[in-house]
Structure formats: structure tokens, C-alpha cells
Amino acid sequence: NQASVVANQLIPISTALTLVMMRSEVVTPVGIPAEDIPRLVSMTVNRAVPLGTTLMPDMVKGYA
């Protein structure tokens, strides 16, 4: 089972991601792979991401 990136807090729309905002967790459905966390830092989300939500590729500008 692959770990995915999960929001560690509410991430408001257009917020630049930082390490403290994300954690890795094995979830269903599978989202962005946890090993991509370093790549996600400073990318922005294009929607509000509630606490505990799995980050999907279409939620992060420039990721997909």
C-alpha cells in the first residue's frame, strides 16, 4: 500500500504548501504519492483543502 499526501490542517485556496501542512498516510483513494512531498513545497492549491483530505493531482497548480 502506497502512502499518499494528506492535509495536516485546513489549507486555504491559493495557499503555498509547506512541509507542516502535509503528512503521509495510506488512504483510499490513493492521491499524490508521499514521496512527492518535497516537490509540492511552494506549489499552491487551487481550492480549499480541509484537514484530513487526500491531496489529488488536480488540487495543486502545476503538479499534474
Rank of each mutant, 00 (worst) to 15 (best):
N1R: 04
A3V: 06
A3Q: 09
V5P: 02
V6N: 01
V6S: 01
A7V: 06
N8D: 11
Q9P: 01
L10H: 13
L10G: 10
L10E: 15
L10F: 14
L10M: 09
I11V: 06
I13F: 11
T15N: 04
T15V: 12
T15R: 07
T15K: 05
A16T: 08
A16R: 11
A16K: 14
A16M: 11
A16H: 14
L17K: 00
T18D: 06
L19V: 10
M21C: 04
M21Y: 04
M22W: 03
M22R: 00
M22Y: 02
R23E: 04
R23L: 05
E25T: 09
E25V: 09
V26Y: 09
V26D: 15
V26C: 10
V27N: 03
V27D: 01
V27H: 03
T28M: 10
T28V: 13
T28A: 15
T28Y: 08
T28C: 15
T28H: 09
P29E: 05
P29A: 04
V30W: 10
V30C: 07
V30E: 15
G31H: 01
G31W: 03
G31R: 02
P33Y: 12
P33H: 07
A34K: 06
A34F: 06
E35F: 08
E35S: 09
E35W: 10
D36V: 08
D36Q: 12
D36W: 08
I37S: 04
I37W: 03
I37F: 02
I37N: 00
P38M: 12
R39H: 08
S42Y: 11
S42L: 08
V45N: 02
R47D: 05
R47N: 08
A48R: 14
V49E: 01
V49S: 01
P50N: 11
P50T: 09
P50Q: 11
L51R: 08
G52S: 05
G52V: 03
T53Y: 10
T54Q: 02
T54W: 03
L55I: 14
M56Y: 09
P57H: 07
V60D: 02
K61D: 14
G62N: 11
G62K: 06
A64M: 13
A64C: 15
A64H: 14
